[in-house]
Nucleic acid binder design. Structure first.
Lengths: 220, 220
DNA sequence: GCCCGGTCTGTGACCAAGTCACTCCCTGTG
DNA sequence: CACAGGGAGTGACTTGGTCACAGACCGGGC
């Protein structure tokens, strides 16, 4: 009866079945292809989204064209924050982009409001997502303001690499991850390569000495 | 009947009187002297706070001792975010400090939960505060990552100055506002002074040519 | 195969900002 | 009045971002 998607959201499985029913009826599963711009200046989603599968990148683009990735929303997480932002308050120019094919539950606004009103569980779910996101933003601010770029790059490489230590990203894309310039990434990667930690090739990087990166990433 | 403080919160004045009553009964007004650390690593408030009067500075302190001001909560605003953060999710090490004597309404958690559950108005109030805060954090990230330090300093001087263009801040404090180093602020202020925009003295700055700063603050 | 555009990467020179190690100065206190 | 301690100035140096290039690689068309 309960569709499989709800299993992805531990915070929701305890929902009173009486409440879960209208939620399940009113919401529908949507699929978006990789590359879709889910929201951004000039585009806004019409419903609250819970991500079942896939990854959404939320990034800020400055007037001068530089970019920085603010965070990612992945399967099992709520997009409530971005959505609430969009509906709730003033204009801002961050954008959300599907990095992979994305499967999500779209909850109409009225249903969302009703759930918030009636379910303590649902409220906890939404508030927790909010808090978590803000904690992450605080951390990001600290990193951007105070952390060295080589440390941040090492961290990001470890985060993004697949389990074989492979990344399919250009230097430009990595620079956008960190909010820095392409040349800076190139120089740092050369240095990492010189130390034997990575091997770079056109549009891809392979980590060959995880320890080196991990050591740099973890400290001074 | 309605105590004066509720007038400070336009979002709450429409509260159903039936709901406002328990709110008013359960909450109490607290006063904190300037300098009080309201929350931070090792200290957390036990109740939700609505600020009636005064200003609370929320700042991040890095391991290396550098600081950056994340935002301020001023009279008429909700501290819900910081509070929710504290209760909601994992540890983080931002701290909130009363910059002036502060008068606030403390709402016990149970009352808060009840209000959230029963009042759409109250929910709107809380969510709006959340959204607004996140929008500000996005802006801050963009500034820290991409904006020039002279532009940011000019903006901050204009923001903080009283209506006579006077600021009672040390260079060190200004550096903490922006998340930069004292020497950098000193150098920039010297430059501003050379251009005849400000006059500096020990522990204080006076803006004498607002236009100059405003022009720098607004662009390139 | 070969050419050709577009994208990706490397490089050096330069500028902006942060760090370090001082110094001097001002001010309030004993 | 001397002195301690915080506030501010300064020069040398490092790190990171910008600019202007020059190659290198890749796919498509012929």
């Amino acid at each position: 009866m309960t569709p499989s998607w709800i299993e992805k959201f531990p915070g929701l499985t305890k929902l009173n079945p009486q409440l879960a029913k209208p939620l399940l009826e009113a919401s529908k599963v949507v699929r978006l292809p990789a590359g879709t711009r889910i929201f951004g200046p000039g585009q806004a989603p019409e419903a609250y989204l819970l991500l079942i599968e896939g990854s959404v990148r939320v990034q800020q683009v400055s007037e001068t064209g530089r970019e920085i990735v603010l965070y990612r929303v992945v399967g099992g997480e709520s997009c409530a924050l971005t959505t609430a932002c969009l509906m709730g308050y003033e204009e801002y120019q961050a954008e959300g982009i599907a990095e992979t094919d994305v499967e999500a539950v779209a909850i109409p606004r009225s249903t969302f409001d009703e759930l918030i009103a009636t379910s303590a569980e649902f409220r906890r779910f939404v508030f927790t997502a909010f808090s978590q996101r803000i904690t992450n933003l605080f951390r990001l601010i600290e990193e951007v303001a105070f952390a060295r770029i080589d440390v941040r790059l090492a961290q990001r490489l470890l985060e993004i690499a697949d389990k074989n230590g492979h990344l399919a990203l250009t230097h430009q894309q990595l620079a956008a991850e960190l909010g820095t310039a392409r040349e800076v990434v190139s120089r740092q990667l050369n240095e990492f390569q010189r130390r034997g930690w990575v091997v770079t090739s056109r549009g891809a990087i392979d980590i060959v000495k995880r320890d080196g990166l991990a050591h740099l990433a973890s400290a001074p």
